[in-house]
Amino acid sequence: MTFEPEVFSDTVAAITARLAARHDGLSVVNAVIAACQTLLTPAVSGVLIADPRGGLTLLDASDERMPVVELLRSQAVQGPCLDCTMGKTVISSTDLEADGTRWPQFARAASTEGFRSVYAFPLRLDGRAVGGVTLLFTRCGELAEWQVRLGQSLADLAMLGLTQERDPRRVERLAELTLTAVNDRAHIAQAVGVLAGTLGLEPESARARMSECSSRTGRPLRELAQAITDGSLAPTALDVEKA
């Protein structure tokens, strides 16, 4: 697995530009997920975070098809992401099938979807972990040490996006941001539906168009979702929307 220095710098810049422009947390998480996909090439990346109402909640995923989303979500009960959150450390299984007793339900559901190995990186905040980045691979095998470090750095950037301020209230602030992000996720899903319904697209392609528009124009997903659902941005104008 290799990539061009140019690809690396563009990918990281997509995250830091959003951090510098103080985009909402979900936009930064979205860029982190794209970076995981490009730089570590899993089949799927997903971010789960502690919901102030209890359990872990899915913030964003590179693949929004229902079985995949459900698999990622099931880690609120059992799976590498829950373990990496509890243990505040990177958790991996390089062969989920051989490792079937660790997370029996998760391993079974993962292999049904064709996944063979998994890595989970903790979202670290003030000596705790408040969730994790899950990478699912369709091949067995171990990441190189530098790739594990890169994965953790990307997770740290996601955390930074979620708690940008230097504030003694960081933990409380994270609760505010998480609840906001959970609602933003619902809002984005509604906007995806509006796009799909108007343009006659499948939800996955509608979602891809929205993401593409957000990266191209620099407008946060949250803002695009608002514009689409309040009617100020016509679905047909999404492809030509300028920054």
Binding site: A189, V192, V194, P203
Partner: peptide
């Protein structure tokens, strides 16, 4: 998620 996407679709 599915409920929210379906809601948007129906609205459109």
């Amino acid at each position: 998620d599915a409920f929210n996407v379906a809601t948007g679709m129906l609205a459109a």
